[in-house]
Design a protein around this nucleic acid. Structure first.
Lengths: 338, 338
DNA sequence: CTGAAAGCGCTAACAT
DNA sequence: ATGTTAGCGCTTTCAG
């Protein structure tokens, strides 16, 4: 391949500068010359070399998006929304997945320094382990938007879901359905010492005056298999549990099989609430009750914040907190009681 | 950011050439000089500018991977396998999703011309619509590996699954369980006039002497919702159907809810076979019987073929056909009969 | 309206 | 062992 602007110019019998003018819709060029150049370019199938362009412009029109995990379908959904908005705003996206490995996340953060993206949207998993790197990006004012980060993290744009509220809504729903023994499944990648989900879970219990049993909480990895094992363990160890709030919908999906293995049926003998409102949740045998954040507008917000940051670096950072809401379907049996 | 090799050289009081030698582990440099340079680089947090490098090397060490769809989890699984092997071989991956839109696929194919990747692995959806573009890539000997392509496509490396066999194995399994009325759900993106799955479905019927009812076949889009609607339509329109072979596991997952809405239970009143052996299939309430191709080795093969092609362009193209196999779980009730 | 020339940052052939 | 220099292909300043 390697047909350069120089070759096009040659073919059209003009200088590279003139070819450039034609190809980039610059003014001050004779319409006929322009036509000649454009024809030559089409004939030779000219495509500007993106590296040369990026090198000189110091701009790639690309944003990097770092997800924690490629298996959880919620990130696929995010990807489509983010990609759509990014395109509207003239950017391409590169999607990366840290797959639960801090080193991978670190490596991707370095992308920024390699100047191969104009900005970064990160769903951080290892804010603590990689705090140096995040810090470097922030003090160097590299365009960065975080999806989910503790309040104390300043100097950076953040879009976050009120997870305390999420935990509260889920738990309250279960309590209102009469459950007194509610398990909670938490990913060990959840940010913070006492993740928001747990705080909300506690608040709902306090509000209803239902005591909390510490053994009802279990941690697990991010894989479906991890969820499956943890849920089985929890349910066998704590047979009184009649309801379960899962860290996310993806892991919640594993509860169907776990329940069945233990001769339980959802929702009859086990109520389940997830979080994320993934598409699959609507199409499983017992549609999943869940806590929904508006992923589409969330994705748009992420992109918009980033683009604004790129365009006007001096603007003070913003923190946007989204309020999730409960979506009642059938996995808690709520609709059956009507 | 913008700390160049020149700055590092300056800081270490050497010429850029020497700095380069140190930073790239070239020989013919005094150990002390090397150390001085490396220290300076570390101190300044030097990262080579990737665009300058790509520009001069005409090599990006990046491969593009074009998937048809970001929602179907099978592509997430492929992505991890492809990514892992690519890394082993020194490449980064860029994953792209054409989302059922020919123009997107076309746009991504153009990536190649923009020389921003060294090669392309494509899971083609629109081989026909975009045949010009594919042709261009092939005649220009751009490193390209296709995953799934008709036999008549020559001059390009192909990894393909024997879908006729897949259809045969699935259907035979159902026939052997005594089903006489077997529905088949086919994605409208399936390649070819009579997709392999259907041919295998027919062969199994012929072999067992069971007649085929044309109304038992239905087409659908690639989204879960499409699958759900199609399955509902098929089952309501053809109530005799007692078994279903779905285009892939992802769409098969929708059959659980569709069945339930029609007051059927899987596997009791409806047997279901999928294809792909996605992780989720193991964890749904009734683990999914499916046709499995070995995705991990498949992903590796794709990468290996591409890397070989990049390294030795003159090597004759290869076509590798994988033989899928049946994985019996519970969605056909097979194990219950024992 | 058109063109010459410099430079983005890295690599590499060719001195010294 | 170290340095000089040219060039990858594009963009852009400045002249004509």
């Amino acid at each position: 391949m390697a047909v350069t602007i120089h070759k096009v110019a040659e073919a059209a019998k003009v200088s590279p500068r003139t070819a450039y003018r034609a190809l980039n819709n610059e003014p001050h060029i004779h319409p006929q010359t322009r036509r000649r150049v454009l024809e030559a370019a089409a004939r030779l199938n000219y495509q500007p070399n993106i590296h040369a362009r990026n090198l000189v412009l110091q701009k790639t029109n690309t944003i990097g998006v770092i997800f924690p995990d490629s298996r959880n379908p919620v990130f696929g959904e995010f990807a489509t929304f983010i990609d759509a908005r990014a395109r509207e705003r003239g950017y391409e996206c590169h999607f990366l997945h840290s797959e639960g490995e801090p080193e991978r996340e670190a490596k991707f953060l370095n992308l920024a320094f390699v100047s191969s993206v104009d900005g970064l949207i990160v769903f951080p998993n290892f804010l603590d382990v990689n705090r140096e790197l995040y810090g470097q990006l922030i003090i160097n004012r590299f365009p960065l938007v975080l999806r989910g980060a503790p309040e104390l993290l300043l100097g950076v744009d953040v879009v976050t879901v009120d997870l305390e509220l999420a935990g509260y809504l889920a738990t309250r729903h279960l309590l209102e359905l009469g459950h007194k023994h509610i398990g909670i499944l938490i990913s060990k990648f959840a940010l913070g010492h006492l993740p928001g989900r747990i705080l909300g879970y506690q608040r709902a219990h306090e509000e209803k005056g239902v005591p909390i049993h510490p053994g009802y909480r279990i941690e697990c990895g991010h894989r479906l298999e991890d969820g499956y094992k943890a849920i089985r363990e929890l349910l066998s160890g704590q047979p009184k549990i009649t309801a379960l709030f899962c860290h996310n919908d993806y892991l919640a999906l594993a509860s169907f099989r776990a329940a069945r293995d233990l001769k339980r049926r959802i929702p009859r003998n086990l109520a389940v609430v997830g979080l994320d409102d993934i598409e699959l949740g609507q199409y499983c045998e017992v549609p999943l009750t869940t806590i929904s954040h508006q992923k589409e507008s969330e994705g748009q917000t992420l992109v918009d914040l980033l683009c604004d940051r790129i365009d006007t670096p001096e603007k003070p950072p913003r923190r946007i907190t989204l309020k999730p809401k409960l979506v009642v379907r059938e996995s808690c049996g709520a609709s059956l009681r009507r």
